[in-house]
Simulated assay, not measured.
Amino acid sequence: MEDARLETHPDLMDPEWRKRAEREARLGAKKDRKRQRKQRPRRRFRMTRRVVVGLFVIGTVALLGATAVVMHQMRGSADPGPQPPKAAPVLTGVDLDRPFDRTPAANWREGTAGITVPAGQAVGGFSAQEVDAAYRKVTEAISAARLGSRALRDHDGSELLALLAPNERARLEAMLTSAPTVEKGSYLTLLGSNRLLPARPRMTGFLTAKAGRKGELIVHASYVTAYAFDVRPGDARSPVDIVPFVRDEEDYVLRKAPFAKGDAGLSLGASSGFTSRMACDAIKTGILAPQYADKDRPLVGPPVADEVAAYDPTKPLPSLDTCR
């Protein structure tokens, strides 16, 4: 039987053929290695190009993103972001919601809260409690005369009259319930056709007490009141056109025994005053009106530098006539 095994093939058994086959195999292997070496750089180049392209794309995206961030930050540094709406221009030149701004009364308190009332101390024959009660009575009288709606709106002095001693009430009743006059205007603030804004009048001042005759206590009130008037568009150019000031130096006299019953209580003593930034035509009739109500009359009065002193209750009353 013929031997079919590969290792016993006649060619394989020939030494010369085996040497030639081995040499050709080695040469073939070398050629394969050369082909592999030549092919590897091409594969490596293709891979590197894809990586470079990928890195370029990624880098470009990152650069664009970074640029966007920088641009956003740059915009942020120049633009502070959403801002509250700016105030609308005031056509009249004044802010009717804040009429006392840019006037001497800007920091004063509303009403009689602006009047400093000291703690009661015994004075003469009046105890500390009686002095406290006198301060309260005087504060009520100031409120009735300068802030009360009956006086301001109706020219009615009945609210002040109700606080007075019987004989003092009888003395002043006819004048305080009559039509407006300059004399009546010295006791009460009276308004004409010009109406106040809703803003409550502002005040500054103080009270002091001293002994009078036996059974008398004199409370001195030194204070200023500022009123804010409504205005039509175009009638006022600045806050001083709508805010007049009334300064008062007043003595209030409280009496008790040995005074008679008719004189016991509150009476009105000596007083003086000063009004500024008002309409001159109106004040000559006892009426307080804003300065803009005088259409053709320029203001004549203390220079601006003196206005701080003019409205300071601790300083002497100005002597200039603002309506000459």
Rank of each mutant, 00 (worst) to 15 (best):
L27M: 13
R102T: 06
A122R: 10
G148Q: 00
A87S: 12
A133Y: 00
K31F: 02
R50E: 10
M47N: 09
P84F: 03
A62V: 13
A145W: 02
T48D: 00
V70I: 14
T67D: 07
V138E: 04
E110Q: 09
Q121I: 05
L91C: 08
F126V: 09
A151I: 01
P118F: 15
R98N: 12
R33V: 02
S143K: 03
A113Y: 06
Q39E: 12
L91A: 14
A145H: 07
A105S: 14
E140K: 13
R40G: 06
T60G: 15
P118N: 05
R33H: 04
R33M: 03
S127G: 09
V61A: 14
G54H: 01
A66R: 10
T112W: 00
V70W: 11
D95Q: 10
S127L: 05
W108H: 08
A119K: 14
Y135R: 07
L147R: 02
R109G: 11
T139P: 00
T103D: 09
P85W: 07
R46Y: 03
I58N: 03
A68S: 11
K137E: 12
P85D: 14
V131Q: 03
G148S: 01
H72A: 15
P89W: 04
A144Y: 03
D132M: 04
V94S: 02
S127F: 05
A133N: 12
T116P: 04
I58A: 08
A66M: 12
Q36P: 00
A78I: 10
Q121V: 14
V138N: 07
R40C: 02
V52C: 13
A145E: 10
V61C: 09
P84C: 10
K38N: 08
P118R: 12
V138C: 06
V94W: 13
A119D: 12
P85Y: 06
V61F: 14
V57I: 15
G125V: 10
D32A: 09
A128M: 05
A119Q: 13
F45G: 12
V123K: 09
A144W: 11
A29E: 02
V61K: 04
V90R: 14
T92I: 03
